[in-house]
């Protein structure tokens, strides 16, 4: 489900469903882009009033907050930087465990 929303209702973490074009027809924000703080400026400059985002929008912005939370939990456990692909694998396994236990807590 897509939703046509006003720029005033746009929040970080929402996903753009239809490419946003300026008055000359050039794509300024592509489909699938996750809205971040920096995009608001671009939209304002080009005077965009409405845009189409992917539903469910509230879940998407919530997910973004969750991701930050999970990343913080990971940083508490792992205080080193991976030096090879095996260490990257260990970090991704740690993230899986954190995700699993956070599901139980919610």
């Amino acid at each position: 489900m897509n939703r046509n929303i006003s720029i005033d209702d746009l929040k970080c973490g929402m996903i753009i469903e239809q490419p946003i074009k300026n008055q000359y027809g050039n794509v300024i924000i592509d489909r699938g882009t996750i809205i971040e703080e920096k995009h608001f400026r671009v939209l304002k400059i080009w005077g965009i009033k409405n845009l189409i985002v992917k539903e469910p929008d509230t879940n998407n912005s919530l997910k973004n907050e969750e991701d930050v939370e999970l990343k913080n939990l990971l940083n508490k456990k792992i205080k080193w930087i991976p030096t090879n692909e095996f260490e990257e694998e260990l970090i991704s396994l740690t993230m899986d465990t954190i995700k699993k236990s956070s599901i139980h807590e919610y």
Binding site: K77, W80, F86, T97
Partner: peptide, 18 residues
């Protein structure tokens, strides 16, 4: 890996770099 998978508990939560 036991720390990563949280199997049992050995007294600390921090995961060491191999």
């Amino acid at each position: 890996i036991a720390h990563i998978l949280e199997l049992g508990y050995s007294g600390y939560d921090i995961i060491q770099q191999p």
